[in-house]
Design a binder for these strands. Structure first.
Length: 856
RNA sequence: GGGCGGCUAGCUCAGUGGGAGAGCGCUUGCCUCACACGCAAGAGGUCGUUGGUUCAAACCCAACGCCGCCCACCA
């Protein structure tokens, strides 16, 4: 395939323009099928299933970060010879989407109840079609190399069937059951939500102390922040070890305002030191009370409707919203002399993480999934080292949660989501099947109604690593690409999502769904606040791409994503990476402008390494490439991008290209080829981080066809410690001469440098050339050097203001070194290598000082 | 209440036992035929506090102080 750079002429513009460079590449990669995975490939496989964003969402910084990380790994693996499947998809986001549709309906003066469930579902489907893949399409702008032929949606027919299958399989194992329990009830969504979907916020409330009379004389005072729930009290509990109350156990209290008789029970769960030490027991509205009630056989009263209004027929509070009822109850208690006192009280109150409504714990019949067996398998898998976490410490977060895991409330009382596949016939039979049944399997009745509940969104997400590949069918994809290799997420969904994928993967596929989990950091606003749309603190990645280019954004992401702490957004660092793109652009431009370059890429030229700088840069290239590779493999992307940046800018551009400029102009084939070889490798190992600019520049190199992303990962292995040592000497001398030149206010070029035999001829002449001075045999007057034995002088300029300062620095260094060397314990206990190193440094400092002084 | 992470240059962050680093910002000099989105030379830090371990601590340990996150059925 003949490859043509995007801009046809080879006259490269002087400055890098991200918009122009990024414009066409993605479409070409995609249309040439570069991201399509071949299940029949002979290569080793590498799979990532992109965490599905909510279909209603907009691309934000978190996506940019997470998707970029995965793309870095995917592109790297492709170049390293793997058959990579990087699968995209979206999540139906039940509660979020339902809220959106309900708002639309409200704007039209309608409710979903008026519309009816079927019409509502149709409306949702239409919405999904309209929103379609806009969210994931934005990944194209980010350059994410996803296999779009395998795009999945959690509400697709195929995926739906996977979810139903999972439910039925769990059901048939006897792990799914229906039972009344206290659940987190969202009165706005009128649905239960799981513990993990509850958001806790501190509230300043009031703690009310209320006196309950005891039959046969006396009374007991309890404390509560939710006095309205007392209307559903069915008992009073005290700690059996509490001297104050022990004698009350077995007696009966009388509920104020209601008159209900409340057995007084003893239970260890009661904290003697909280409030009064006596607890009102409301099994219908508090998880702990529910358990106490179960232990003592207390009655359960449900005192609330599903919209959080009171359900207390016959009482004046019936139908009131909870907070209104609270006020009335408190007033009445006060009026009747039952309210002992009120205290300000700060505590955590649960809110729905989707709509932020205050959660009401209440008793409800729900679908539950038994977790103990899956939990134990997951724990065993971790013990066997099947899943590696990056950074490692998150494994503990996960394991701690897992160990305390309880059954999962998988039912939701929404209209949107995967419908529970349970059908009831008119004769009281229950049918649980993947496909909707025609008739009752037991009595043949065709009057069937489906259970109204839908499943928790995370139930379907839990199946992502294999349901996307076709499970339960044994598809080619499933056989080839399961297990996945990597999962990358923010830490906030480790328990919601990652843990559940691991459990279902082990259960249904018999293997953990991925071997590595990368947990990336969170980008905060520049002032340290959370980035959020509602706070107005969000930064739109698309604006950054507009201003600095995708490559700059991605390089920055790589430099911060795996940071141990959350990072504050810092635009100047992104700008820095745009300048880096520009640097690469211009380095390429320099090489392409050297004479005779179009016939370059002659095999063999690389074998000639007579020049010190050539050997040096090739050695440094091998080093840099090794660091970049190791960084990606270890999920420490910052090490990769830092090494690539430093090599490209500080070594290749600042030193090597400067050193070979004359040779380039003279058409030196060796210099050209070594420079091209370095640039070629550099563009390749930068490609996963900065795909657009590297593809563009690489396409302009002579003799390069096809795409850089389809070329092999570079593995240079030229290591030459002696060249690195010698070139290092030259660098030190050049920097010192430049320093003297500036201090002497001498012109930028000219002057004479004399070096004695201790500096090799190659090093001496290279240093002189780069420092723009003439190398001479003899030099009587001039500034003595510190980095080598020799002197430098300049044609014009005033004295040497640096000397005193330099002397002071050297003297201080020497004093420190000598003090340490004089320490006997150091001499005897420190490793020999450390002592030797210090001795050498001391000697070098002494001779530098001597040279400085001798010159006076 | 339990756990985790952070505190390093003016700002944002790397570094994790033996010579304090980067980007941006700042100072000075340069439009040197790749790049002023640049080149060169600099200034700037008792590495949160206090103890301990060690010949040696930014780095290991302990306590404390702030900042942030996760988990938790004390009304």
């Amino acid at each position: 395939m003949k490859h043509v750079p995007l801009t046809e002429d080879n006259q490269m513009p002087k400055a890098f323009d991200p918009q122009a460079v990024e414009a066409g590449w993605y479409a070409r990669w995609e249309s040439d099928g570069l991201f399509i995975a071949d299940a029949n490939s002979e290569n080793r496989k590498f799979t990532i299933c992109l965490p599905p964003p909510n279909i209603t969402g907009e691309l934000h910084m978190g996506h940019a970060l997470n998707h970029t990380l995965q793309d870095i790994v995917a592109r790297y693996r492709r170049m390293a010879g793997y058959e990579v499947l990087f699968l995209p998809g979206t999540d139906h986001a039940a509660i979020a989407t339902q809220n959106v549709i309900e708002k639309q309906l409200a704007a039209e003066g309608m409710t979903k109840e008026q519309l009816g469930r079927e019409a509502f579902t149709a409306r949702v489907d239409e919405w999904y079609r309209n929103v379609g893949d806009t969210i994931v399409s934005q990944d194209r702008v980010l350059g994410i190399s996803l296999d779009w032929t395998r795009l999945r949606f959690t509400m697709d027919a195929r995926y739906y069937r996977s979810v139903m299958t999972a439910f039925v399989e769990f059901y048939e194992r006897g792990w799914i059951y229906r039972a009344p329990r206290i659940v987190n009830w969202c009165p706005h969504d009128r649905s239960a939500i799981s513990d993990l979907e509850v958001e806790w916020q501190e509230h300043q409330d009031t703690l009310y102390f209320i006196r309950y009379r005891i039959e046969g004389g006396g009374d007991v005072t309890i404390a509560t922040v939710r006095p309205e729930t007392m209307l559903a009290d069915t008992g009073v509990a005290v700690n059996p070890n509490d001297e104050r109350y022990r004698s009350l156990i077995g007696k009966t209290a009388v509920l104020p305002l209601v008159g209900r008789k409340l057995p007084i029970v003893g239970d260890d769960a009661v904290d003697k030191d909280f409030g009064t030490g006596a607890l009102k027991v409301t099994p219908g509205h508090d998880p702990m009370d529910y358990e106490i009630g179960q232990r003592h056989g207390l009655e359960i009263v449900n005192g609330m409707h599903d919209d959080a209004s009171m359900n207390v027929p016959g009482l004046p509070y019936d139908g009131l919203p909870a907070l209104d009822a609270r006020r009335r109850v408190v007033e009445d208690l006060k009026a009747q002399g039952f309210l002992v006192k009120e205290e300000p009280y700060a505590h955590e109150v649960g809110h729905c993480d989707r709509c932020h409504t205050i959660i009401e714990p209440l008793i409800s019949d729900q679908w539950w999934l038994r977790m103990d067996i899956m939990r134990d398998k997951a724990l065993a898998a971790s013990e066997a080292g099947k899943v590696r976490w990056h950074p490692e410490r998150y494994e503990r977060t996960y394991l701690d949660w897992l160990r305390g895991l309880r059954d999962w409330n998988i039912g939701r009382q929404l209209w949107l989501g995967h419908r529970v596949p349970v059908y009831y016939c008119g004769n009281g039979h229950k049918i649980v099947t993947v496909e909707a049944p025609e008739m009752c399997s037991e009595c043949g009745s065709t009057e069937l109604t489906q259970d109204p509940d839908v499943l928790d969104t995370w139930f379907s997400s839990a199946l992502w690593p294999f349901a996307t590949l076709g499970w339960p069918d044994e598809t080619e994809d499933l056989k080839t690409f399961y297990p996945n290799d990597m999962n990358s997420t923010a830490r906030e969904i480790i328990n919601l999502w990652v843990s559940r994928m691991i459990m279902t993967g082990l259960e249904f596929m018999g293997e953990v769904p991925f071997s590595d989990v990368a947990i990336h950091c969170v980008v905060q606003a520049a002032d340290g606040r959370r980035m959020s749309k509602s706070l107005g603190t969000g930064v739109d990645p698309r604006d950054l791409i507009q201003n600095y280019g995708t490559d700059a954004l991605r390089a920055w992401v790589a430099s911060v994503a795996m940071s141990t702490q959350d990072v504050r957004f810092d635009e100047s660092r992104i700008e820095g990476y745009r300048r880096f793109c520009n640097k690469l652009w211009n380095a390429t431009r320099l090489l392409l402008s050297s004479p005779g370059i179009q016939s370059s890429d002659r095999p063999g030229a690389l074998e000639v390494q007579e020049h010190l700088e050539d050997r040096w840069i090739l050695s440094r290239l091998s080093h840099a490439c090794g660091v970049v590779t190791a960084g990606i493999e270890a999920f420490t992307f910052q090490e990769s991008i830092n090494a690539a940046y430093a090599f490209a800018w500080n070594e290749f551009c600042d030193w090597y290209l400067e050193a070979i400029k004359d040779r380039l102009r003279a058409g030196d084939i060796v210099a050209q080829d070594i420079a091209f070889s370095c640039l070629d490798a550099l563009l390749r190992f930068l490609h996963p981080f900065m795909p657009f600019v590297t593809e563009e520049l690489w396409s302009r190199l002579p003799g390069r066809s096809d795409y850089v992303m389809r070329n092999p990962w570079p593995q240079p292995d030229f290591v030459d410690p002696r060249a690195e040592e010698e070139f290092g000497q030259a660098m030190a001398i050049v920097e010192e001469v430049r320093g003297h030149r500036q201090a002497a206010e001498a012109p930028p070029r000219g002057g004479r440098l004399q070096l004695d035999g201790s500096t090799g001829k190659t090093v001496a002449s290279l240093a002189a050339r780069l420092a723009h001075v003439d190398l001479v045999e003899e030099l009587d007057r001039g500034t003595p050097l510190v980095t080598a034995v020799g002197r430098v002088s300049f044609p014009a300029g005033s004295g040497d203001s640096r000397r005193e300062k330099e002397r002071k620095r050297l003297e201080e260094d020497l004093a420190k070194l000598e003090a340490k060397l004089a320490n006997e314990e150091f001499q005897t206990r420190a490793p020999a290598g450390v002592v030797k190193n210090l001795e050498e440094r001391a000697e070098a400092t002494r001779s530098a000082l001597a040279r400085l002084t001798a010159g006076e």
